[in-house]
Design a protein around this nucleic acid. Structure first.
Length: 416
RNA sequence: GUGGCCAUGGUGAAGCGGCCGAACACACAUGACUGUGACUCAUGCAUUCGAGGGUUCGAAUCCCUCUGGCCACCCCA
C-alpha cells in the first residue's frame, strides 16, 4: 500500500466541496448581515495559549492536543478550537482599542487527537464567530439569532437550540459548593468517573450518561436556581429577546461546556440525527477570558459550528455544476478554432469544455453527455468554411444553425 | 485511552477450504454507426481477494500478528 492520509484526517473531494462552499458562503452572507468581519489567525499557537484559555484540566488540554516542540525548543500546538487564537490576536493587535465592539468570524481546520467516529475527526472544521466588548444580553440574543438564521438559511430545521446559564464568579462558587454537597451525599450511587468529578469538575456529573448517575442526580440543584441577581436578570433578558425575535429554544439546566472559560449564557444546537455527536454548534459567553489572556477587562461571547456535522445534516444535497457548452472537434484546423471560441466564451464566464484526448466524434459527444453539458457544437471542415455550425440543446436533441461568432453563441447558450 | 463489527476491482458487492483461470451489476474504454450523445448489442476491464506469517495435498475462504475503516464508550463542534 502506498502512503495514506493520517488517521482521522480527510480529503474533501470535488463531489463534496460544492456542499462545503454552500455552507461557507451562507455563513459569510449571514454573518456579514450581522456586521461580522472575517479574521484569519494561525493554525499553530504556543501551547501555553490553549492551556490558559481552555483550561488545564479539560480533556482537550489533558489528552487531545497535537503538541510538539519546534526547532527553537518552543512548545507549539495545532489549535484545538478557534476562540483562543482569535482572542490572542484581539489582545496582541489591540483591536479592542480601535473599536469598542469587535464582531469577528473565522473558518478553518481544528485538531484534536480523539478516536474518530461518525461526525468526529482529528482534523475537523469549524465556522465560528465572536463578539467582544459587549456584556448586554441583547448581544447574546443577536448571536443566537444569527446562528438560528444561519441554520434556517442552510435549509435545516433539525438542530434545536438549547440554552443555559453558567453564572459568573460571583454566583458560581456558591452553586458549586451546593452541588458538591449534593453529590457527596450520594457518592456511593455515582460512577467512578463522577466520584472523581466531585472535586475536579462537579458540573460535569450532571452531564453523565451512566443510568445510575442520571438517577442519582435527578434532584440536583441547578445553576439557574443559584444565579445572582445580575446573572438571573441577564439570562431572563436573553430569553425575552429570543422570544421577541421568535427564536425557539429550550432551557437545558444540565448543559455543561467542555471549556473552562464560559460564563453566563451557554448554548448548544443539538440534533438526534448524528448518532453520538449531537452537538452541531455550541458556544457561550466568556466574560473573563480576554482579561485572563492579558487583555483589558472586556466581555466576550462566541460560538462555533462543526462543518462536517452540518454537512452530514445536509446530506447528499446536490451542488453539481455542469458545462454550458461542449465543443466537439474534427481535425486539427478546427482544434485551434475551438480553442479561440472557448477562450472568448470562458472570458464571458461560461464553462466550456472540449476534447483533449483526440477522441472520435462519438466519444466526444458521449463525454459531453456524461458531463451533462447543456449545449454541444461540432466543429469540422464544413463549419470552418461556412462559418456556421449547428448548436445542439442536449436535453432534447434539438439543433439550430448558428454563426460561429462568440457573441452569437453566448447569446444562444445564455439563460437558465 | 477502552470496546464491538468489518476489510474482495474505479464503485456496490457474490463467494464461507478444491467447481475461483473470482459471479453479477454499475462505472469506464473501444467498436457496431468513415461527421453527432442518451437506447441496444459486442468486446475489454481483480495473475488476485488490506499487509505479513501460519495450518493444509489445496486458502479469498481456517488461525495469529499488524495495518486500516466503521460504530459505540469517553469527550466534544
Amino acid at each position: 500500500m502506498s502512503i495514506t492520509a493520517i488517521k482521522g484526517f480527510n480529503d474533501l473531494l470535488p463531489a463534496e466541496s460544492g456542499l462545503w462552499q454552500f455552507i461557507e458562503d451562507t455563513a459569510r452572507r449571514v454573518f456579514s448581515s450581522f456586521g461580522f468581519n472575517e479574521i484569519r489567525v494561525p493554525i499553530v499557537e504556543k501551547t501555553e495559549l490553549f492551556c490558559r484559555s481552555i483550561g488545564d484540566t479539560t480533556d482537550i488540554v489533558e489528552k487531545e492536543m497535537y503538541t510538539f516542540t519546534d526547532k527553537a525548543g518552543s512548545s507549539l500546538t495545532l489549535r484545538p478550537e478557534g476562540t483562543a487564537g482569535v482572542i490572542r490576536a484581539l489582545v496582541e493587535r489591540k483591536l479592542y482599542a480601535q473599536e469598542s465592539i469587535n464582531k469577528l468570524y473565522y473558518m478553518g481546520p481544528m485538531f484534536r487527537h480523539e478516536r474518530p467516529q461518525k461526525g468526529r475527526y482529528r482534523q475537523f472544521h469549524q465556522i465560528g464567530a465572536e463578539v467582544t466588548g459587549a456584556a448586554d444580553p441583547m448581544i447574546d440574543a443577536q448571536l443566537l439569532l444569527m446562528v438560528s438564521r444561519l441554520f434556517s438559511e442552510l435549509g435545516l430545521k433539525e438542530p434545536t437550540l438549547q440554552i443555559n446559564s453558567l453564572g459568573c464568579p460571583v454566583c458560581r462558587p456558591g452553586y458549586r459548593e451546593a452541588l458538591v454537597n449534593f453529590l457527596d451525599e450520594r457518592r456511593d450511587k455515582l460512577c467512578e468517573d463522577c466520584r472523581r468529578r466531585i472535586s475536579s469538575n462537579p458540573l460535569r456529573a450532571l452531564d453523565c450518561k451512566v443510568p445510575g448517575c442520571v438517577e442519582a442526580t435527578e434532584g440536583a440543584p441547578s445553576m439557574i436556581g443559584h444565579l445572582c441577581t445580575e446573572c438571573d436578570e441577564h439570562f431572563k433578558k436573553v430569553q425575552s429577546y429570543l422570544e421577541t425575535a421568535a427564536v425557539s429554544f429550550s432551557i437545558n439546566p444540565r448543559m455543561v461546556r467542555g471549556l473552562d472559560y464560559y460564563t453566563r449564557t451557554t448554548f448548544e444546537l443539538v440534533t438526534g440525527l448524528l448518532g453520538a455527536q449531537s452537538a452541531v454548534a455550541a458556544g457561550g459567553r466568556y466574560d473573563g477570558l480576554i482579561e485572563q489572556l492579558g487583555g483589558p477587562s472586556v466581555p466576550g461571547i462566541g460560538f462555533a459550528l462543526g462543518v462536517e456535522r452540518v454537512a452530514l445534516l445536509l446530506g447528499d444535497r446536490c451542488f453539481e455544476r455542469t458545462p454550458d457548452l461542449f465543443i466537439a472537434i474534427m481535425g486539427d484546423a478546427s482544434r485551434s478554432e475551438a480553442f479561440r471560441l472557448m477562450a472568448a466564451l470562458q472570458h464571458q464566464g461560461f464553462w466550456v469544455e472540449s476534447d483533449y484526448e483526440g477522441k472520435s466524434l462519438k466519444g466526444q459527444l458521449r463525454r459531453a453527455d456524461k458531463l451533462k453539458a447543456r449545449y454541444s457544437i461540432v466543429l469540422g471542415e464544413t463549419e470552418l468554411t461556412s462559418g456556421k455550425a449547428s448548436l445542439k440543446l442536449m436535453a432534447d436533441g434539438s439543433q439550430q444553425i448558428i454563426e460561429l461568432l462568440p457573441e452569437l453563441i453566448a447569446a444562444a447558450i445564455k439563460g437558465e
